[in-house]
């Protein structure tokens, strides 16, 4: 007389879950709606936080916090640095740009007046096919937008572009910049570190890559606050808040389920086994978690996708998982009792 538990496909339970959650009058719909709203809030929080971080990082980058100066241009006892090894630092993953910069002299341009001309490594400033670059501040003052042709005092035209704004420590914003460097050895090397890199951690690698000549000590100038924006990013609380929002959704899903014990009883009284009911409940919670994640990702894409890495999406996914885990205890609480116990609940 023992009855075998019939196999009901997962697709049937998924259909049941959708029919329980989709009608706007059902209590399940409230759980889905809450998941969507909360997921949107989570995405918005991450996007806003990322935007704030990006602005913070940009500000810090331009303040020169990420610039390291190796060697001392004005010190004749400073060891000589191979220019190639200095420019080679630009290939390191911790480094955004590296190279040398040297004042070549002053020159008159009819549209700019008398300005400093700096010779720099193309690994330090990207020339983009131009012969010369006009520093960002100088271009602002002169009303130059570039690219175009800029005549010198002899009437010779040069293809020019406007250089991206350089950080403090790479003092090119008020100069005309040319990519020309006759010297094989220099006394100082400028390194612009990536935003998240702390100079203290990167220095041993940087110094070890340099080819030095001479007995003197290599001077190093670095900002102890470098990488602080990234540290602030790691220490921010919005990710924990997003996880908490996920848990809130899970708790709310559980609460809505506890408010409708008759639903679970109906399935058990219809002959659904505990495992079958658990499958249904799990699919319902999965739909709520998915709604949370989808809304979060959509909000990120709409409000700040361009400044967010994949990590933000992962945090939204983790929050969705947290919602699923949080809802499990209540799921078990409605699955384990005998059906008639659920009716009396």
């Amino acid at each position: 007389m023992k009855r075998r538990d019939p196999r009901v496909s997962i697709l049937e339970w998924a259909t049941e879950a959708v029919r329980n959650l989709a009608p706007w009058r059902s209590r399940g719909f409230l759980a889905v709606a809450l998941s969507v709203v909360t997921g949107g809030v989570a995405g918005l929080m991450l996007a806003a936080s990322a935007s704030a971080y990006q602005a913070d990082q940009d500000r810090e980058d331009l303040s020169g916090a990420q610039v390291v100066v190796l060697g001392e241009e004005s010190d004749p006892d400073s060891p000589l640095i191979s220019r190639a090894s200095c420019e080679g630092l630009a290939r390191l993953p911790q480094v955004r740009a590296a190279g040398t910069a040297r004042l070549m002299g002053y020159r008159y341009f009819p549209r700019l007046g008398r300005v400093a001309v700096m010779a720099v490594s193309p690994q330090l400033v990207q020339f983009g096919g131009q012969q010369i670059l006009v520093g960002a501040d100088l271009a602002d003052r002169s009303g130059l937008r570039g690219p175009g042709h800029l005549a010198d005092s002899d009437g010779v035209g040069h293809a020019y572009g406007v250089a991206p704004r350089q950080p403090e420590g790479v003092d090119l914003n008020g100069s005309v910049v040319v990519a020309r460097w006759p010297d094989a050895q220099v006394r100082s090397c400028l390194v612009w570190l990536q935003s998240a890199v702390a100079a203290e951690a990167a220095l041993p690698t940087l110094v070890s890559q340099l080819e030095l000549q001479g007995q003197g000590q290599l001077a190093v100038r670095a900002n102890p606050e470098s990488g602080a924006a990234a540290q602030r990013l790691l220490g921010r609380s919005d990710r924990a808040a997003v996880l908490l929002l996920g848990m809130l959704v899970g708790a709310a899903s559980g609460l809505f389920r506890r408010l409708r014990p008759a639903d679970a009883a109906s399935y058990r009284l219809s002959g659904a086994s505990r495992m079958a009911l658990f499958t249904l409940v799990l699919v319902e919670d999965l739909i709520c978690a998915s709604a949370f994640v989808a809304a979060g990702l959509a909000m990120i894409a709409v409000s700040g996708g361009q400044v967010l890495g994949p990590a933000s999406g992962l945090w939204v996914g983790a929050a969705g998982l947290a919602s699923l885990v949080t809802s499990l205890p209540v799921a078990l609480a409605v699955v384990l009792p005998q059906p008639i116990g659920l009716v009396k609940d």
């Binding site: 009608p23 009058r25 059902s26 008759a262 009883a265 109906s266 009284l269 008639i340 009716v343």
Partner: peptide, 10 residues
């Protein structure tokens, strides 16, 4: 059961 347990929205 004494109280008719049904899925009210179905």
């Amino acid at each position: 059961p004494q109280s008719a347990s049904l899925l009210g929205h179905r």
